[in-house]
């Protein structure tokens, strides 16, 4: 179905966040990052005035979407809440995780603060476990330089296995490059291959056992190794989220009772 610009815009801004993934003309880009990394500056510079704010469905977390065009391609940029991790400690983290995990954006740009790269990398590493389509945007390069840091972007690219772009968003520097890399990732001209994070031997042994099984249950839509890791961590909020999206996992449908039960018992334990 061919959609006009206007009607697709409406869909994107609909109450339930129902972004139309079937529309090949629109590429969905998620924008993630720690708070205070200049994520909003990147968002504003990329989308200009074409943005809409609202709340995530049923959550008190604000939510912004904007669109931009690059090489005749329509992109919708979704500004995820600023978080330090995706371990679902908070509603913000859950919202960000669920979007990347279930809405499956065509690419996720992770904005990192160049002045405290180490802390910011934690989030990037966690996102790279969920999806390979990650672009790292190292922002605030000028401030880092002032503080005496030099960041080897090429080396970072090799270490992470995903494209890395340096920016000074406040001055608009590097944003064209960011768009270009996004274009290449979205059109499969670059295929990011995130380096695997190795956990303690106990965890790895369990993962080895359950990941192939999970793959059968979950199918292609979601990274089985990551789900396995979350299950080992005992993250019942992910099970709840999977239950909410059960329609996208045909193999899992017959297990929905288990899923529901597990989520419920865990939840009632919190206050006990």
């Amino acid at each position: 179905m061919k959609l006009t610009h206007r009607s697709s815009e409406k869909k994107v801004n609909g109450r339930n966040n129902n972004i139309d993934f079937s529309d090949p003309n629109i590429k969905i880009i998620a924008l993630a990052g720690n708070p205070n990394t200049g994520k909003s500056t990147v968002f504003n510079s990329l989308t200009g005035l074409n943005q809409h704010t609202g709340n995530w469905a049923g959550k008190t977390v604000t939510h912004a979407k904007g669109s931009f065009y690059y090489r005749n391609q329509h992109y919708v940029l979704v500004d995820l809440p600023g978080t330090y991790s995706l371990l679902a400690n908070s509603v913000e983290e859950q919202v960000a995780r669920d979007f990347i995990c279930f809405n499956q954006p065509h690419a996720t740009i992770v904005v990192l603060d160049a002045t405290c790269l180490e802390r910011n990398l934690n989030l990037a590493l966690q996102i790279m476990e969920i999806t390979p389509h990650v672009i790292i945007c190292i922002n605030l390069l000028d401030e880092a330089q002032r503080k005496g840091y030099f960041i080897d972007l090429n080396s970072l690219n090799i270490q992470l296995g995903v494209p890395v772009v340096g920016t000074i968003a406040r001055e608009g520097k590097g944003l064209e490059h960011l768009k270009d890399i996004t274009y290449q990732v979205v059109n499969n001209l670059i295929t990011p291959k995130p380096a695997k994070l190795i956990y303690s031997s106990d965890i790895e042994r369990t993962l080895e056992k359950i990941t192939p099984q999970l793959e059968k249950l979950l199918g292609e839509r979601i990274n089985a190794r990551w789900v396995g890791l979350r299950l080992i961590d005992g993250d019942q909020s992910l099970l709840n989220a999977i239950y909410e999206h059960i329609d996208t996992f045909p193999e899992l449908k017959k297990e929905s009772e288990v899923l529901k039960h597990y989520g419920e018992t865990k939840q009632s334990n919190i206050l006990g």
Binding site: E118, N122, F150, I151, S155, L160
Partner: peptide
Amino acid sequence: HAEQITNIVVK
């Protein structure tokens, strides 16, 4: 892991 990468990448 983040620390290792930082040590390699940041001077």
